[in-house]
Design a binder for these strands. Structure first.
Lengths: 183, 183
DNA sequence: GCTAGAGTAGACAATTCGGTCTACATATGT
DNA sequence: ACATATGTAGACCGAATTGTCTACTCTAGC
């Protein structure tokens, strides 16, 4: 809608994801985006509101990306294979839609805020539920045990890839294990 | 060794782990510990040096805790069972040694710093390698595939527990799946 | 008793933080 | 043509940031 608001959210998301939220001040967001500080505070009541908007934007991007990666799968085996192939591609910085991989924005954000009741952490939990739902909807005869296993390994793979592990090897292991579990 | 230094590291670790590193200023560390600022800078060249010392302390505590939890295991099945039982207990805030659970300090710290070559992130990677080694040493005929699976699920369980998931249920799933994989 | 080491309190510097405010410019709809 | 909305630049505020410095106190060893 509003182009300035959108620019601010995009810039904030980019800076927050790359550097961590507490490392980026409002002044950096405005100087990088080229938007006046007054305009920022015309669109957002506070830095926290901007953070929430950035989280929402990231959620939209990620959910759409995942949905597209999984849509059209014909078996649970294929869902597993596609999901972890997509993650591997993300880890290897080959997914332009998601930007350069630096872990899960929502896990990272959770690390920076301690008030579990804040809107920020509530949204992080919401995102994880939604992602679980997306995966679930693509599974045939949604087996809860399989869904749990997929979600656990997905988070594990993301964390290990972020801390310098071999993202390709890890996702391959996950695929192998989960496909064995399903058959 | 030096009591003031130790007090500073303990206080810093507690505050950093509870609130995130960038949310805690040097002034808070000194006011909570009751140590003069001058003394802090007599022991540490900078905040970064204090952070590294806190990471080291946390690593010592965690490594000793894990070692104790796994020592005396008589089979890979038992290692798996013990590891995830210990994690479940940690997630449920029943491990006094580790303090109230708020995720993995090293994953959390990785989220706050972006320079992969900094001493801070180097130490986070070192910690993960060491933990992997500890688990590996307790496995019989250390099967690399099993070790990978354990490490992936361990990270996944920690992240899910941190974001409000049912830590007990997740660790039970992990135990079940890994024991099936091993038999 | 004196000296040296270690610690204290807190002022201070320089910068940055989130956020407010004034004064002005531009663009759009009627 | 004029009003309204939306934008700009940037001064300003009080608080907080990391880090330095001065001046004083306490304690242990000789």
């Amino acid at each position: 809608m509003n182009p300035k608001r959108q620019l601010l959210v995009d810039t904030a998301l980019d800076l927050f994801y790359k550097n961590g939220i507490n490392s980026i001040g409002i002044n950096e967001v405005i100087s990088v985006s080229g938007v006046a500080k007054r305009t920022l505070y015309a669109h957002f009541a506070s830095k926290e509101a901007l953070i929430v908007a950035a989280l929402q934007k990231r959620h939209e991007i990620f959910a759409a990306w995942l949905e597209q990666k999984l849509s059209g799968s014909n078996s649970n085996q294929e869902v597993i294979q596609r999901l972890f192939a997509a993650l591997a591609s993300w880890f290897a910085h080959k997914e332009n839609t998601l930007g350069d991989f630096r872990g899960c924005f929502f896990i990272n954000t959770s690390a920076e805020f301690s008030d579990m009741n804040s809107e920020i952490l509530q949204f992080c939990r919401f995102h994880k539920e939604q992602v679980r739902d997306i995966i679930s909807r693509h599974l045939i005869n949604a087996d809860s045990a399989l869904l749990d296993a997929i979600c656990i390994m997905k988070e594990g793979a993301i964390v290990i890839a972020q801390l310098g592990g071999d993202g390709g090897a890890v996702t391959a292991k996950c695929t192998e294990m989960l496909q064995a579990l399903e058959s």
